[in-house]
Structures are given as structure tokens and as C-alpha cells.
Design a binder for these strands. Sequence first.
RNA 1: GCGAAAGUGGUGGAAUUGGUAGACACGUCAGACUUAGGAUCUGAUGCCGCGAGGCCUGGGGGUUCGAGUCCCCCCUUUCGCACCA
Length: 867
Amino acid sequence: MNYNFSEIEAKWQRAWRDSRAFRAVSGEDRPKYYCLEMFPYPSGSGLHVGHLKNYVPTDAFCRYQSMRGFNVLHPMGWDAFGQPAENEAIRRNRNPREMVPEYAAAYRETLIKTGCSYDWEREINSSHPGYYKWTQWMFLLLLRKGLAYRATAPINWCPACKTGLANEEVRDGRCWRCDSAVEKKPMPQWFFRITAYADRLLADLEKLDWSEGMKEMQRDWIGRSEGAEVDFAVEGDGPPIRVFTTRPDTLFGATFMVLAPEHPQVAALTVPERRAEVEAYVRQAQGESEIDRLNAERAKTGVFTGAHAVNPVNGEKIPVWIADYVLMGYGTGAIMCVPGHDARDFEFAKKFQLPIVQVVSRDGSTHELAAAEPGEGIAVNSGRWNGLATADFKKTISSWLQERGIGRATVHYRLRDWLISRQRYWGAPIPIVHCPACGEVPVPESQLPVLLPDVENYRPSGTGESPLAAIPDFVNTSCPKCGGPARRETDTMGGYACSSWYFLRFADPQNDNVFASRQALDYWLPVDLYTGGIEHARSHLLYARFWTKVLFDEGLLGFEEPFLILRNQGSLLALTPGRRPRSQEDGGDSGEKIVDWIVLKHDERKRIPADQVVWRWARMSKSKGNVVTPDEMIERYGADSLRVYEMFVAPFEDDVHWSEEGIQGSNRFVGRVWRWLQAARPFFRGDWRTARPGTTTPESRQVRRKLHQTVQKVGAQIETFQFNTAVAAVMELLNAIYSYAPIEKEALTEGLDPLVVSELAETLVLLMAPFAPHLAEEVWQQLGEKGSVNRAGWPAFDPEVAAAEAVNVMIQVNGKIKDKVSVPLDCDGETVKAEALGREKVRQLLAGRQVVKMIFVQNKMLSIVCR
RNA sequence: GCGAAAGUGGUGGAAUUGGUAGACACGUCAGACUUAGGAUCUGAUGCCGCGAGGCCUGGGGGUUCGAGUCCCCCCUUUCGCACCA
């Protein structure tokens, strides 16, 4: 009988819904387990099989945990606010308000069809007022704690998205979404002071079970660096120039200074006769794109301001230059230049013929420097500090500077504050009122949420202002403080605000009085297992950790880290049609990005001749036209087969080149399981556990051994996220079962113990349940078992049954395996030696030679060394 | 340039952490059953060799009775960071 998957899968999906099978009830006695996948933004392209590379294994894990007796919370929701959704709405000329729920519903349908065990009663949508009320509440909390502020600063402006971008959203000077070159634009915008938490965000990484690579990315992004700030007095009047350096021990080698072109002191420092030149350079630097400035390969440029500063350690006058290799955004925007020991300063000094002095040496001697020597060593040419080792010198000089009030040891971070303002429609309005009398006034909590108005035109204004600014009914309001006329803030919050706390909301998603009750939070949180793509390494995960710490500090949470274990799934790649770029598209001489392949646009599909199409592997996405949908796979092979394939095809973390050939193998496996269980069903005895097998043939013992070994293996491997080998283990077991009890035998039990067959059948169903839950439920019911298999206990394994009776011990002669002997488990060395030396083959090899030594490893190997 | 991970059959991938390399699967080949089969079942399948046997984990050294696994050098790929002072 073939497996009618479409009927059976529909039956159980209905049954799970009707029985609320995956509802998580807070406060139960069973230990809780909170398992979460990064919630998706619902796009029009729908889910593709690539999404399931995450959802399916994580679901198998949840089902396994449920069978082990955990009270599992496995929720799903929609990251519905933000530009992806808004851009899609614009493209389709839809209102996101109507479009998003449709898309979410489609996602939900597909996820239900895959048999994923979500508690849909906890579904959340971040664009729903009941949700974003609390996003706004979080904003006010940050504001109250001094962690939100408004500042006019040059921000990353994406001209295509017409909005500001946080630093984390800029890659190689380009917008992460649309790849446009990012510009700098000064605008008043809201920021969150994440830098205040830099040290804790860095230190607490140690507590987390995340991949080392992931932690390293966060460390890089936070970019802690220890050093010193030093004030250089300026010749004449004017405030000193403050620099940051990680090498205060090289102060004696500082022969000039460089300021970023945007540095606020530039104008004041520049002498009149150099003004024209300096201003021209500043203008030129401003006109450059971020991409140009980020290019480290190009030659150094700069101009002299005419001003001099005084090196505080030796009183020497040193020239002050400006150059675009110094960035305003890091440190103080000014540096002391030590050409002898910094490659960039060396290059600059060579070009502009500035003096180069050696102040660090390996052995205390000095020599002509052919290149910068950035390493540590012993101080030379450093006055009374000569001879000090770098580390000691750093400490000494820092205190020396501090005593004189001209410097101090400091720590700088690469991390910038989080730009939250978006000049876009589709986001949570920032709950602030601008009052001419009172200034920036927070909207009182009782007036939350500040509703996003329903509008006709939600497109970006083009002026840089939010579309909300064009809606008088929204903008014009009264000041909550003085009651006078005032204007609402028209920026909305970037999507990352919503995703920085959603994992808390799942604990108590309907609560209207608080973002989640403390009781529910204490029961469910923190998230025990979090899974998602590596692309969120620095943005989402950093922000969510930041908000969690703020809430902890406020006493609202009892934990400081939201995601204890993090696993990152690989993506699915699909063959994607593209073409060679045309000459004007290859970057030419202006663009640095070398493109050698461009995805075919929709209209190009038919136009381009087949022989000009170039196929490449690329991540699945609708825009690339290479998606395979779960729906079509489920239609053809069933959800269980698709699930098995997604897990079996490769390790969880690995990228996969999608092909349909593999899924047929999984389909075959599922069918084999089904057919064997159907054949075994008539002989099934529910009392096998108590009725004890009467006959124990060697074959029975062997297959039971395999069974118990498999139970152990599958559990252990699900726990370590090795789903591919866990599935393989069940396949091995099935092969063993087929040779023990082939279906074609007239009677499956002929010559077999029906109790053994029963044990095999029941345990096989349980082992299949996390992977192929529909099949498992169906057979579970057929076998006359009560309740959902998802609540049946995970099978126990008996170590005695699982233990091997005999083992093959390898015999090595001079390091090469020559023979093997089969001996009982844990057989002692002497017996094995005697056995081995008696073997004809071994005797021949040892003839005329002298045995030097023998090494015996129990159950593994006997190594004979001879001369 | 810096940092991280990885390189195993025709393919996806296993390998208890130093002890039978290639589990499991795809593909291929052969057989069985079939009116038929893109179904099912059985078997074979790293490479060279008729064979005995020899050779195989990116390349080259080393440690060891024994190395895919540990150490050193090199090559390649992927990812992250990068004029960060």
C-alpha cells in the first residue's frame, strides 16, 4: 500500500489545529523550552524551500523536546514593518496595510502545510497597533534613561530608499538593500545610545553558546581598542587638538598631525595664505562618495594648514595637515602621526617629505627605516624613557600625561550609536511632540500608541522628509506638557526596533497593560534556542541584546542575555540565469565593484538568446527568479519527504545547492518506512514491553542492538543539531529492519518474534516523529496508541541491548592494517595477541622477523612492530 | 592586509576526536518481479591492476606503532573586517 501523503498530511494538520496540539500554556509544571526562529518579513514572493532550511530542522528539534517532556514554546510572527514590506507595496502599487496581512496569511498557510508545530495562538504582527504601542513604549523607556537622543549629524543617506541608514546597514559604502552608493547628509535624527553598552555587549559574549564566528563578528563590530587621548597644544591661541592613539609610547616619533577634513577645528587652524587650498580640499573630500573614501588602495592626499602644534613630550613644533585618510567618525577625528611605526603615516610622510623618526626598536639599536615598523619593542629616541618595553611605556606615559592634565588612558569603540529615524511611512511613529515652548516632549504612555495614519500616498517624499509630514491631521497636535500647539515627530522607527523585543512579546502576546507580564517572562524567557541566518550577525542580534540589557537594568527582566544558544542555518542556492555585464555596467573606471554576472531581469528572460545565458548558483530569492516553493514540493512528494530532505541533504549550517534529485531519495525512504510499518501492523502487539520476547535468535539480538544504538544516536544528534546524520541513522536502522524482516516474506513474522517486530515498529514510529510527523501520527493511531505522538515519550535505550557482542580488532604490522580478528567485546590483550599470532597471514608476515613491541587498544586494534 | 571557517569518490556528505577512510543518500551498472514502470526488491559501485597486491582525505614536510584528525610550510575557496589611528 502506497503512502497517500496528501490525504494523511491534511488529516493531521486539521487534527493538530482542532486539538490545539501545539499550544504553549504558561506556568505548567513541565520544564519549559523556548525555541525561536528569527521571524520573517512576509514578502509577496512567499516562502521558498530556502526558508525551510531553518524552520524544518528547528521544528524537528521542538518536536523532539516535546517528546522528551518539555513544555515547548514555538511561536511564529511577522516582522511586518519596515522598508522591505514598504518597497514591495510601492512596487506593486498596494497599500502595505492591506498587503502585509495577505502575505502573512500566505506564509502561515505554507508553514502549516510543512507540518511545523507553531503555536498560532501567539502569532504576532509588528505592524499591528497592539504591538507597536509597546515598541513606542520601549522608545520612551530609552528616552527616559537617557539612551535616546536627537542630534543633527551627517548620516548615511540612501538616495534610492530616500532614508537614513544605520551604520550596520551600510556595506562597502552601499545600501544593504538596494546597493546604491550611500551619501553623507546632515539631518536631525534620533539615535539610541548603544555605545553606552559597548563594554557589556562585548564582555557578555563570553556567556553565550554561539558559533565562534558569530561572536567574532560582534567583537569586530564593537571594535574595542585601548589607548590614550592626548592633547596637543596649538601654536598661538586656540584650543588644543585632541587625538586618540593606541600607541602613546610612540609620542616621541610624532612628527606631524593630521585632522579629518570635516574636523571642526580646521577652519580656525588654517592660516590665511593656505585658506583657499584647504577649503578646496575640504570641498573635494565632501564630494567624494563613501566608497571612494573607503578604498584603502588609493594614494594618500592631504594639504598643510599652515598651523603647528607642540608635541607635549619634547616640545617640538610639528605641522598640522588635513587628509581624508583620517576619518571624522572614529576616535577624535584627529591623529598624531608616527611615520616610523604606522604604515599609513609612513606613506604620507614619504609623499610630503615629512620627517621620520624611529622610536621603537627590537633590540634597542637604531637604523634607517625602509618601511613603517608597527610592532612592539624597546623605546629609542624617547628621552628619559629610552629602554622601556612598549607595554610598560604605554602605562607610564599615560599616567605622565594624566598628571599634567594633557591626556589619559581611554578606550574607544568602533561601534556607533544606532540611528533609528526613518523618513518613511511604514514604521512605528516615534512618540515625540515638538513644542515651540517645551522642546521635545515625549507622548505620555496613556496616549500610546501614536497611530500610524491611514493614507493614500505613503511613498517617500523625495524631499528627505517623512510622508507623515504632509498629513496635517497627524502633524498638528497639542503639546502634552503645556497644551499649546505643537508638531508631531514625523520620522518612524526603523524595522530593527520591532525585532529588538519581539521575542519577549511571544511570552504574552495579547497583553494590553504591559509589553509582557513579568510572570510570563520569568516562565518562558530567555530564549533557549534561537535560529536564523548569519546576515543578522551584527545588526539585529546586537540591538536585541542591547534592549534586553536596558530592560534588565530597569528591573523589568531577570536576565541579561536574550538568546542563550544561537545556531545559523545555511542557505539554499539555486541555479540562476544571468548574463555577462555590458561594458557600461562593469563598473568602468568609476566604480570599484567588479561585477562579472548580472541576474536576468524578468523581461530579459525571453529576450536573451539561450547561448548567452550564464547559469550560476545564487541564494534563492524571488527577485532572482530562482525560487522553488515548498508548495510545489509538497504537492509532488509530501511535506514529510520535503522535511526529511531539508534535514538530510547537508549539515544545518551548510549552504546547499538545491536539486530535485535528492528529494526523491527522501521520498523513497519515507515510503519504505510506511510500507514496512503497514506490513508489520497486523502482527503488532501493544504489550511487547511487558510480554518480553520469548525467543532470542542471533538475528533478533542483532536487530534490537541496532535499534537501541539508533535510539541513542538519533537523540544525541538532534540535540547537537546534526540532523543529517540523525536521519541517516534511521535510514541505517530501516535497512537493518528490512534485512531482518523483509516485506516479501509471506508472513512478516514467520520465524520471527512478533514482540521484536512490535518493538521495532513502535520505536521506528517514535524515531520518525520529529522528522516525518504526519506519517508518525497516522501509524501511531493505527497501532492503537493513544494521544499525539508528539506527546509520547521519546524511546529509552537499553545500553545492555545496545552493546556489541563481538568486535573486529584490526591487526597492524608495522603500521599497516593486514588482518582482523573477531573477538568478544572487551576481550583482553593476551587473548587477542595469541589469536593474532596464530593467524596464517600474520605468521607469514612475521616469519624471520623479530617482534619489537605490540600495542593493544581494547576493541580497536593490535599493532605489531617488528624488525 | 587582518581575522575566522573549510578543502574527503562522479555528486551531497559520514568518520565515536589519534585507531577498519568513504556511513547514509544521489547517480550509475547488473539482476528479480512485472503488460508496463520515472514503482518496488536484491546486489555491485574510491582509484590502478586479470590477479596477488598497490595507491587514496588540496600540496609538501614532521610527530607517532598508527594521522582525514596533532604540529610546521605552501596552495585554493568561502565568509567577516579593513586608511579604526
